[in-house]
Design a protein around this nucleic acid. Structure first.
Length: 189
DNA sequence: TAGGCCATCTGGTCCT
DNA sequence: AGGACCAGATGGCCTA
C-alpha cells in the first residue's frame, strides 16, 4: 500500500487519446475471465447484461478504432496493462464481496453497494469494539485480563483521533448508529 | 429521463 | 524497467 501522499494529479487532456497512441484494436467484450455471471455480482443482474452481450462496448473508449490500430509492443504493453488492471479490480471486488458476506445486514435481496459496504463495515466494527470494551471492562475493575489494556488502547486511539475515531465512546452509540444505518439501508434511504 | 452504480480504459506516479 | 496503485473519463444498465 502506498502511504505517501501524492501531489494532486493533473490529468492529461480528456480522451482524445484516440487520436494518438491507438493501442490496437480494442478488446471485444472482455468480460472478466470466468465472469460470465459474475459471482460477486448478484442481484443487479449484470449477469443478464453480460449474457446478452450488452456489455460489448462496456464503458470503454475505443482506442484505435481506425485501421492503423495495430501497433507493436507499446500497444501490446497497454493491453497487458489493461488486463492486469482488470484483474486487480476483480480482486478488489472479490474482497468487497467477502466483506459483504461477513457484515450482517438486512435486505438480502439487494446487494450492498460499495459505499454502503464500507460504511456499514466501519460502523459494525465500531459497534463490536465498543461491545467488547464494555464486556471486558465490566468484567473486572482493573487488574488482569484484557479489559483495562483494551480500554487504555481505546482511549489512546480516541485521543489520537485514531481509527476508532468517533468521539462517542458509548457502546450504545455505536450500536445505535449501526442499527439505524442498517435500517436506513433497508428502507433504501 | 435523471441519477446512482459499475466496469473498463488510460496515463501518471510510486515502488521494487 | 516493469508492475502496482490510483483517479479521471466514458458509457452501459438499472431504478425511481
Amino acid at each position: 500500500m502506498k502511504t505517501k501522499s501524492r501531489p494532486p494529479r493533473r490529468r492529461a487532456p480528456p480522451q482524445d487519446a484516440d487520436a494518438e497512441a491507438a493501442p490496437g484494436e480494442r478488446t471485444p467484450d472482455r468480460s472478466p475471465p470466468g465472469a460470465g455471471p459474475d459471482p460477486a455480482k448478484g442481484v443487479r443482474s449484470r449477469a443478464a447484461r453480460a449474457a446478452a452481450g450488452a456489455r460489448a462496448e462496456g464503458g470503454r473508449r475505443r482506442p484505435g478504432s481506425g485501421p492503423g490500430g495495430r501497433r507493436d509492443s507499446s500497444a501490446q504493453r497497454r493491453l497487458e496493462s489493461n488486463e492486469r488492471e482488470r484483474q486487480r479490480m476483480h480482486k478488489l471486488n472479490n474482497a468487497f464481496q467477502a466483506l459483504r458476506e461477513v457484515i450482517p445486514h438486512v435486505r438480502a435481496d439487494k446487494k450492498l453497494s460499495k459505499i454502503e459496504t464500507l460504511t456499514l463495515a466501519k460502523n459494525y466494527i465500531k459497534s463490536l469494539t465498543a461491545t467488547i470494551l464494555t464486556m471486558s471492562s465490566s468484567r473486572l475493575p482493573g487488574l488482569e485480563g484484557p479489559g483495562p489494556k483494551l480500554y487504555q488502547h481505546y482511549q489512546q486511539q480516541q485521543q489520537a483521533g485514531g481509527t476508532l475515531g468517533a468521539p462517542e465512546a458509548q457502546p450504545q452509540g455505536h450500536l445505535q448508529r449501526y442499527s439505524t444505518q442498517i435500517h436506513s439501508f433497508r428502507e433504501g434511504t
